Amino acid sequence: MDPLTDILAGMNIRAAQFTRLDASAPWGFASSGDPVVKFVLVVRGSAILTSPAHPEPIALCGGDVFIMFDAEPYRMFDHEDSRTIDCIEVEKLRVGNRIEVGGGGAVTTFVSGFFDIDAAEVRPLVGVLPKLLHLKLDQSRSLAFQSVLELLALETERPGLGSEAVISRLFELLFVHAIRAYSVQPNDLTRGWLAALSDRHLALSLEAMHADPAAAWTVETLARASGMSRSAFASRFKAVVGQPPLEYLTGWRVHRAVRLLQQRNTSLSEVSRRVGYESVAAFNRVFKRETGTTPGAFRRALLAEADTI
């Protein structure tokens, strides 16, 4: 199993919402940022995007997509001289899932959406992605990716029975295909486990760890799985992934443990065994070192939060 599949399999998308926005020139709006995953597809027209992460203006045109993975503020406008209004004011113009804003000139149409994800579930993924991911129309895209974009634009333009459910699923697919598209851009992706998946030797070791994280892996056995010598493997893994192989394995075991601790009927001893620790004491030490809290305290906090919802 590759790491991306492993992470996405445990991801639960919540509170998905979408908007079709027609902005007529002159127009501009600013967002202070929200702690959710945000998608924006430019269906037609053009726009300029700026954010603290990308101070240089990003030109957007029809077919472009940008995705923001955290509460990064941003501004979008048709011209740098256009007055911008707060997104809170833009939201007041909503009628159903559509918004019209601007001065009545040339129209730029966006399909935007957001959804909430448990930060713990996707921490390994968000950690290797940029705050703002821009995918241009002229970049190589798979037929599946393009099909999702076309379906999304069509469904929001002519909503039918069950449209909200369809659009939520399309956003999930768009999320997956966007990460795939980003992962094959070698000029942008140079470090982290996502970059390592493009290395045929390192990919084999990552797949082995994710297929069986509880195995008694050593640098030697991982090197054999990758078809490399021990020294060459250890050096390349650290250079590309950014951490030694066993340190990466520990982080993934703790991430897997976080998922298991969310299951009320799984004991701490069972969790520790399933992530590769023979004793609960050893598991406790590693978990607290990595997260700052014990597995038991972490679970109690989860249960208390769930009981208040």
Rank of each mutant, 00 (worst) to 15 (best):
S205Y: 03
L132V: 15
S142K: 06
F171K: 03
I167Y: 00
P73F: 04
L154V: 05
K131E: 15
T108F: 05
E121M: 06
E89I: 01
N97W: 07
A144R: 15
D116M: 04
L173Q: 15
L135T: 03
L174K: 12
A178T: 06
C87L: 11
E172R: 14
G127C: 10
H134W: 07
L125Q: 02
G104R: 07
V65W: 02
T190G: 08
I179H: 07
L152R: 11
R83K: 12
E155L: 06
G192Q: 12
L174M: 13
M76S: 05
R75S: 14
L125T: 06
F114L: 08
H177D: 10
F110S: 00
V126H: 13
V101S: 03
V184A: 02
A71Q: 12
L125S: 04
A195S: 08
L170Y: 03
D64C: 06
P124T: 13
E121K: 09
S82F: 08
V176E: 12
L197N: 13
H134Q: 02
G96N: 10
L137Y: 11
P124E: 09
L137K: 15
S140G: 06
D188V: 10
F69T: 09
V126I: 15
S168M: 03
G63K: 06
E91W: 04
L202W: 04
V90M: 09
L189K: 14
N97L: 02
L174R: 12
Y182G: 01
F171D: 07
F114Y: 11
L149R: 14
G62A: 15
S112Y: 04
I179V: 15
L135N: 02
F115L: 12
Y74L: 09
H177I: 03
D81Y: 04
L194C: 03
E157N: 02
F77C: 11
A153S: 13
P159T: 01
G104Q: 03
T108G: 01
V107C: 02
L161T: 07
A181H: 13
P159S: 04
E91C: 02
L204F: 14
I88P: 00
D188T: 11
D64P: 01
I88C: 08
E72F: 01
L204G: 11
G192N: 12
D116A: 11
S205D: 00
D138M: 05
K92I: 01
F175T: 11
L93E: 05
A203P: 07
A119L: 10
D86T: 11
A106T: 08
E150Y: 12
H177K: 14
Q185D: 07
L170H: 06
L129E: 01
T109K: 05
R123I: 09
S147I: 03
R75H: 07
H79T: 12
V176M: 09
S142W: 04
T109P: 13
F114D: 13
H134N: 04
T190Q: 13
G105Q: 02
V90H: 02
G105H: 02
K136S: 11
R141F: 15
V128T: 14
S82C: 12
M76F: 08
V184I: 15
H177W: 08
A203W: 07
F77R: 11
F171R: 01
S82E: 08
L173H: 15
L202K: 05
